[in-house]
Design a protein around this nucleic acid. Sequence first.
DNA 1: TAAATCCATATCTGATACATATGGCAGATG
DNA 2: CATCTGCCATATGTATCAGATATGGATTTA
Lengths: 302, 302
Amino acid sequence: MELRHLRYFVAVAEEGHVTRAAERLGIQQPPLSLQIRALEREVGAQLFRRRPRGMELTAAGRAFFTDAQEILQRVDHAFASTRRTARGEQGRIAIGFTNSAPFHPFVPRVIRAFRDGFPLVALNLEESGTSELVEALRAERLDAVFVRSSAPDYSGLAVHFLMEEKMMAALPAGHRLAANSGAKPLDLAALNAEPFVLYRRLAGPGFYDAIITACRDAGFNPTVVQEAPRILSTLNLVAAGLGISIVPASLQRMQMDGVVYRRLKTVRKLVAPLSLAVRRGEPSPAVGRFVDLVRKTAKAFR
Amino acid sequence: MELRHLRYFVAVAEEGHVTRAAERLGIQQPPLSLQIRALEREVGAQLFRRRPRGMELTAAGRAFFTDAQEILQRVDHAFASTRRTARGEQGRIAIGFTNSAPFHPFVPRVIRAFRDGFPLVALNLEESGTSELVEALRAERLDAVFVRSSAPDYSGLAVHFLMEEKMMAALPAGHRLAANSGAKPLDLAALNAEPFVLYRRLAGPGFYDAIITACRDAGFNPTVVQEAPRILSTLNLVAAGLGISIVPASLQRMQMDGVVYRRLKTVRKLVAPLSLAVRRGEPSPAVGRFVDLVRKTAKAFR
DNA sequence: TAAATCCATATCTGATACATATGGCAGATG
DNA sequence: CATCTGCCATATGTATCAGATATGGATTTA
């Protein structure tokens, strides 16, 4: 049996009249009559009762009619769905981001923009450390990853730089340098005697190394008294008075009791980049559309 | 597109290799390659990415693969389901019976036997008066009807006599003729001075007329002091002492306080038949099977 | 570098779907 | 009651299409 048989059958069932159904289908009455007979032979059941004035469905024919309509409907749906997927308008993509990425207002904004523009594409969101994310990207568990730093190894991946943001000092409330919050930016060198609390290097090597390098360029080695596993625990430790930290400016959206943010005088290397990494080669249409939107939105965001 | 295209596509998708898929399908590799290309043109999307060593699905191809498998599965299901319906092993039939029919042990038994034998056939059961049932049968709201009497007009219907049962006298407890319940059968003439409570003629004309005729043959006109709309209300009125009644023997399964059943000496015309009525012509396979089972079970029941 | 593997293209042929002509049957009509 | 009408079924011919065979092109493998 072929779909042609189902289409012919449904037409005859709806018309109750072979000649009218043939007209509707654009063929002549004898081949339609033959096709119905062939279908009945193949199904192994009589689907119509022949009358002098037209045909009527048997009980088996009524059962088959229901199924046939549904099958034809599903075929049309399959076509439409496949075309949408091919155009990237439908499907599923998995997006990863580092623990600090969501605090950057760009990331939630572009995710919302994508959802609005492509409601039929399902987004899976994953948050993890940079290394885990890159590994998942390579293993095809993730399709695109927002990263905030240079990973040790981006081979096989395409990394699209989106933007960068300044870093700020995070000081315990009551700290001698915390007065006049929002006033004149601090010299990085003013932090030379301070104990440092830094986001663990393994989780965010880009931040860690950038901070170390910037301090050395300012003339001192920072005293790292504690590494924190998460960006939030970094702030918690600062609030507890264990030391100071340097974090991306977007973190100041996270107002936390006991933490005061102070701007720093511009240090060329002390910035936090935001990039999107994907696998090289041919992305799925949905991933392609996502990358396009992210890059376009990043240009408009600056 | 035809089902052939779906079958070819699924085979290639599963094998990832056109030559192997062609072998599996029993055709040569070049026509299969052409059919896949034709399908991609018709869908309007590339379903496979060609590699030097085989083909792999695109995102659109993966979406289509899911749909194609489901469609082919539904086609097989439609065939099987239609065959079952054609064999009367599946479908739905509506059975009607008069208010008194369920008390005959045969009726629930044959219904259970049918359910056991054809679990995929759904039974709708309706209870009503004989006239309503016959009307519903003619209007195709019911497919088969158990009746207990001769309806005024069975034209256009086929009535299969199943069996008959004796009638019994239903007396108020304490009645002078109620003593020695189960003893020697009563003469019908012994009831000549009694007030009669009868099941309404409109609801069960066969019973009514048979009782009137039998009494006249026994030499008296029964004094009908009350007609009851339902067989149960007939018994209720007897229990209340309004009079006596004559009911099918199967009613004695309905033990009711205040009612005593007494057998009657055999009166040729005073029996309650049980018949199955269906429309003339070609019943659906499920109805045909039901009629067959009912008739066969009735023979074994006697 | 030659051979192997795999899909794509070209050409031919048999099978099949459809057109046309006509027949048969049951119901409608005069 | 005879004739006509409406509708599906059968017979025959033909154009189209699916599949076979032969061969080519590109990439990988030995």
